[in-house]
Design a protein around this nucleic acid. Structure first.
Lengths: 360, 360
DNA sequence: CCTTGACACTCTCCACGGCCGATTGCTAGC
DNA sequence: GCTAGCAATCGGCCGTGGAGAGTGTCAAGG
């Protein structure tokens, strides 16, 4: 990622100028010229001097001039340097944090998807950008109750209650017919033996007992337990993430071209690209930023994604963040995403615990 | 709706000219002038004559000239007259019908939402407009199985299986504690007495027995049966309709203004306006059309909605249609919406019957 | 009475050109 | 090493003017 290391490091003064330039451009949205920067507080330098420095910065690839007489704007590389080493983060206002926390926890219990939706919409309204939150994976699902119902044609409806109040169900296609009695016995067996255990645990115990007595219905049991595994396919819709405030993106002139907006929205609809991009930030802890062309997707050339994974019990269960133009208020957005990730984690946690505290 | 009835009826020739004008405008998207119409096949009239007729049509409010030298375009009233009495509907191609039918029935069984989503996306791709399908109401829900599980703090998780493979669940806030045994007995009672009955029927029988023996848990039973009533609120997401291909709307120059697109998309997000509009077409059978300002919503001033209710067992369970610019290919779109409504109805029906054919 | 050709008029669209302002790179001087 | 000054460059703005398209009207003809 970092090549040409010799000329990579601008002088202290150059860095200050770069910071002021980026900050000014983010605020005003116009290319900023040497005169503006010279007047701008802080450094006492003539426009000519600043011009020299800016020429250097342009050589290094941090800024670029849209045309001869129009000042400079940051490149993706410039933004990268800015967020990595120059930005002065501006912590969220305390009242905002409290309000956000309430929004995330006042929700009706147990519904992870509702929390994700609330977080997405909160992110959007706090930043005036598009908010995005992946539906949380269930970190551990403890079996609460299971039930089988016969359908037509060797199909069986399995209903699982996990984590004490979450219902999942799926239709299983079986190889042979099962009698009502068999199904009842299978359910009883599972309920008696495995209630309160993690589904993964249940699964492995079932595998161990495979050649035991009830092998004739092992297939049924295994399948039913496995349905809660990778993704909670409760409907055809829990496809990935919750997006909010996309329309806010139309307010930015850098995206006001209809064709660009269209492609962007189509990408939102596909979900694929966005999801793989978000997945990348699962690797590292903390806030990840993908600026413009860095993402590798043409459609996002003029967009930045600020994302952070969120955790339950120190396990990463999802990613959230915002999507906006490269020219966004990083110093405000980054803390917002950071805090939201933490709060979503704890909201999920407490909603889980509320239901776990008692039980049968 | 129809005022000034004396001058309402243009002559046969005027109607022909109006039809050609509308058809031409729909095809080309440009204001159409007298010369163009004169050259256009059919009538053998000089441009001057046509100009006279067009002046009449303009007086009647069917067409309007954007400016002095730009030909005429249809008004909403003009479109209305066109679709009501002039349009020559062009039936769907048979292969398209078959393909559509397959798309709607090849789906995995029982999931009404998936059928709606498929229909929405099919509508969009057939018409190159935005497709919209409301989530079907359940016309009749027969009770298959019910189960209660205790949660913390006097809350009870109720799980219902209706129509043989559809699972619904909700958390009930109760007034007092229930023991495990009580819950089991309540479930057994309901399962033994009411399996196979319509939920409404179950409800009324419960009400009759209100002062009978088990009145102490009637509240529980009633609440649990009622959850399946008005809307299947299985998640926080089944909020109304499935929209597809919104981005296709950005292709039309009449909507290519960013501000308009933005408001339109925000309206899609709100859902409220669109839903009340769709609800209006539940009144009448068959295809309903709302042209531009007729809708009464400013945001839809330049849009037309073509909608039709769809039925299961002769009961209207939802509405589907397309949203596009007023300038759309009505002669193709209307039959498509019509056929899709029928096919969705029968797809829902057959998916229902597949599961009902057997059972325990 | 309806139709038609002719004519003057209106209006949009677009290309051209000139001017203004902003900004730069360069060079000479401090 | 910084700064002031200078010429050069380029986008944005505005008024002009011509081309093109279409209209309304009017008088002549069937």
């Amino acid at each position: 990622m970092a090549n040409d290391p010799t000329s990579e490091l601008p002088s202290e003064r150059a860095r200050q100028i770069l910071r002021m330039l980026v900050e000014h451009y983010i605020r005003e949205g116009q290319p900023v010229g040497s005169r503006t920067l010279s007047r701008s507080a802080g450094l006492d330098l003539s426009p000519a001097t600043i011009r020299n420095v800016m020429a250097d910065l342009e050589d290094l690839g941090f800024i670029i001039a849209p045309h001869t007489s129009a000042g400079r704007i940051p490149t993706a590389k410039g933004y990268r340097f800015f967020v990595d080493t120059l930005v002065r983060l501006q912590p969220m206002a305390e009242p905002d944090v409290v309000r956000l926390q309430h929004q995330l926890e006042d929700r009706f219990l147990g519904d992870a998807k509702a929390i994700a939706a609330a977080a997405s919409s909160a992110l959007s309204s706090l930043t005036s950008l598009a908010g995005v939150v992946t539906i949380p994976r269930q970190p551990h699902s403890t079996l609460r109750h299971i039930e089988f119902l016969p359908l037509s044609g060797r199909r069986v409806l399995a209903i699982l209650v996990v984590n004490d109040s979450e219902v999942q169900n799926r239709i299983l296609d079986m190889e042979r017919d099962y009698t009502d009695d068999e199904l009842r016995r299978a359910a009883n067996f599972l309920n008696e033996q495995f209630t309160g255990l993690d589904l993964g645990e249940v699964r492995s115990r079932l595998l161990v007992n495979l050649d035991g007595t009830r092998e004739f219905m092992n297939r049924l049991m295994l399948d039913s337990i496995s349905i809660a595994g990778p993704a909670q396919k409760s409907g055809a819709d829990s496809s990935g993430y919750v997006l909010s405030g996309e329309t806010k993106l139309m307010n930015f002139q850098e995206l006001s071209d209809v064709e660009k907006i269209k492609q962007l929205f189509e990408a939102f609809g596909q979900q694929r690209e966005i999801l793989t991009l978000l997945d990348r930030s699962v690797a590292a802890q903390g806030v990840q930023i993908f600026i413009g062309e860095e993402s590798g997707y043409r459609i996002l050339d003029e967009c930045t994604i600020v994302a952070a994974p969120y955790t339950v019990d120190d396990q990463i269960v999802g990613v959230l963040g915002v999507i906006g133009p490269t020219r966004m208020a990083y110093e405000r957005v980054i803390p917002i995403v950071d805090v939201t990730a933490r709060l979503v984690g704890s909201a999920l946690n407490s909603s889980l615990n509320t239901n776990l505290n008692s039980g049968s």
